[in-house]
């Protein structure tokens, strides 16, 4: 366990000291704020508070996924690029500890950014009525989207030394998952269900958006995160000994 804590600490400090962390935080909060003003609050027609909050979580979820990709792109590619991975690989640290340490550091940073966004739903809370459960469910969904994005991004990052390639591959995987429900109507029986289940957003996120927590959807995001972290570990394992 100790190495995981050590890696979390180091990676968190790296986000706080590097421009990447702050750029991602600033861009995310900026877009989030803009979208909130334009789409959620800024329309002429009077709307229910809960509708505004749903809107807010709608784009927050997407942004969290994208931010996850950007935060994760450096995690392994950069270490391979600069050769610091040799330090980890020649130390008594297991591959899964490296992966988990890096993942949780990025997740904590991402959660930190979202804590800064909480003023937006609170503004709605001041002027209208919003169930607290709605906020909890929404933020849970956002964090789960973010963690899936991080896991996908980290998997992409483990495949290459180039952070640019990592972000492109990560985005491609995300888009493929996002659109996988399109395959459902054109495939046969067991697969159509699988493809519609696989869809990153349209099947699983709306319930969080509306303020309900369904275990099935939580399980979906957790298993996506698990699958990509597991794949990352396997890639690391196979790369470790080969070059």
């Amino acid at each position: 366990m100790k190495p995981i804590a050590l890696i979390i600490r180091r990676e968190l400090a790296a986000y706080l000291r590097s421009p990447l962390g702050w750029v991602v935080a600033a861009v995310l909060l900026l877009i989030d704020g803009l979208a909130f003003n334009v789409f959620a609050v800024g329309s002429d027609t009077a709307r229910k508070s809960s509708e505004v909050i749903s809107q807010f979580f709608f784009f927050s979820g997407g942004l969290a996924e994208a931010a996850g990709l950007f935060l994760a792109m450096r995690l392994i590619a950069e270490e391979r690029q600069t050769g610091t991975i040799n330090l980890l690989f020649s130390s008594p640290v297991r591959d899964y500890q490296i992966v988990l340490g890096k993942f949780f550091a990025a997740l904590l940073f991402l959660i930190g950014i979202h804590i800064l966004s909480i003023y937006m739903p609170l503004m709605v809370l001041l002027h209208g009525k919003v169930a607290k459960g709605h906020l909890v469910a929404g933020y849970l969904g956002v964090v789960l989207m973010g963690s899936t994005g991080l896991a996908i991004g980290m998997f992409a990052s483990s495949l290459t030394r180039s952070q640019l390639v990592a972000i492109v591959v990560g985005a491609a995987i995300s888009v493929a998952l996002l659109l996988s429900w399109l395959l459902a109507p054109v495939t046969d029986r067991p697969f159509d269900q699988f493809f519609s289940w696989l869809a990153l957003w349209n099947k699983h996120f709306p319930s969080f958006m509306r303020g309900s927590i369904s275990l099935q959807d939580v399980a979906y995001y957790l298993s996506m995160t698990y699958v990509f972290l597991f794949a990352t570990t396997r890639v690391l394992e196979s790369r470790r000994w080969s070059s």
């Binding site: 790296a14 600069t82 008594p92």
Partner: peptide, 21 residues
């Protein structure tokens, strides 16, 4: 090529390595 984390200070880095080992 020495495996150095550029954004760390020398003593933080050595501390990190020592703990890692």
């Amino acid at each position: 090529t020495p495996p150095l984390y550029d954004e760390m200070s020398v003593q933080d880095y050595l501390r990190f390595v020592a703990e890692l080992k």
